[in-house]
């Protein structure tokens, strides 16, 4: 078998032969397209940990939806959105009205949410159910799940296009839009809603724990390669999709569980970017300081 054929067998055949692989890829790619741009803004706005905390915050809502309506996706999504937004609002209030800063107040609320969520799921279900909520079932995506993922992504990209400019301005100079009306506040609110929406929409595919990985890791990686905001978004989307495919292939060939494999693939991309990315990567930095050192000694000669 020629090298080309071997490569084809390794990379393409699993998707050709098995419907569940195609669906898993479709679901993950759909999720990636929406989550990665949101992740880029989270990284740019220094809100990365908040994104992770949010993924825990939505858990009790998802759990409550599960408790009341079983594995009903609309119920779980509605619950997740509700508690996600509630936590965001409550921590914002606590930050505004008390001496506690945003990071601590948010941490407090999301920890409460996480414990509440685990309790709720354990009350009615088994730890299997908890596992499925936390880690998703990317290998079991039915039509409804695929439509849901596609709908979330379409909505996300649409809203992002609308709020792009005020979002960028608000990241860079928060006071500027505040002086000119309420546009900044609306943009910020819409963005938070998108974060929650993608986390909730993604929990079916990857689970609430892992979905934030697909949101953040490609975005953090893109920063080392692309210059502009648009460039980072495009690259983050591409990297997230590549990581999804790679993770599924790893799961297929190496018998690894699927959703962690996708996140590990994204993690590998991140590490490569940190090491060798042209904008701020470690290797680049080492080369530059060596060049600088040589230049200095050259001048001294």
């Amino acid at each position: 078998m020629s090298a080309w054929q071997a490569l084809h067998a390794w990379l393409v055949d699993p998707f050709v032969q098995f419907g569940f692989m195609r669906r898993a890829l479709a679901g993950a790619v759909a999720l990636a397209a929406g989550a990665a741009p949101v992740g880029v803004f989270l990284v740019l706005r220094r809100m990365s940990l908040m994104g992770d905390a949010m993924s825990h915050a939505i858990l009790p809502g998802v759990a409550a939806g599960y408790l009341l309506a079983g594995l009903s996706v609309p119920a779980m999504m509605a619950g997740g959105v509700f508690t996600g937004l509630a936590v965001a609002l409550l921590s914002g209030l606590v930050t505004r009205l008390t001496p506690l800063r945003e990071d601590a107040s948010f941490a407090a609320f999301y920890l409460i949410s996480l414990a509440l969520g685990v309790t709720l799921v354990s009350l009615r279900g088994s730890s299997t159910d908890l596992m499925h909520v936390l880690f998703g079932t990317v290998l079991g995506m039915d039509d409804a799940a695929l439509y849901m993922a596609a709908a979330v992504t379409t909505l996300t990209l649409g809203v992002l296009a609308l709020i792009f400019r005020p979002l960028v301005y608000e990241c860079f100079d928060p006071g500027f839009l505040r002086m000119q009306g309420r546009a900044g506040a609306w943009a910020h609110g819409a963005f938070l809603a998108l974060v929650v929406l993608n986390l909730v929409g993604g929990f079916q595919v990857l689970g609430t724990l892992m979905v934030v990985g697909l949101m953040m890791l490609p975005a953090a990686s893109a920063r080392f390669w692309a210059r502009s905001v648009g460039g980072q978004i495009a690259l983050a989307m591409a990297l997230a999709m590549v990581a999804s495919a790679a993770g599924l292939l790893l799961s297929f060939h190496l018998d690894l569980p699927a959703s962690p494999a996708i996140i590990l693939a994204a993690g590998a991309v991140y590490l490569c970017s940190v090491a060798g990315g042209p904008r701020g990567g470690l290797w680049q930095g080492a080369r530059r300081s060596r060049r600088r050192a040589l230049a200095i000694t050259g001048d001294m000669r």
């Binding site: 098995f18 569940f20 692989m21 290998l139 799961s251 690894l256 569980p257 699927a258 962690p260």
Partner: peptide, 15 residues
């Protein structure tokens, strides 16, 4: 164990 998350390889084998 009812806890394990299956890998794509397992599912492919079953299919």
């Amino acid at each position: 164990s009812t806890q394990g998350e299956p890998s794509a390889a397992e599912v492919a084998r079953i299919i």
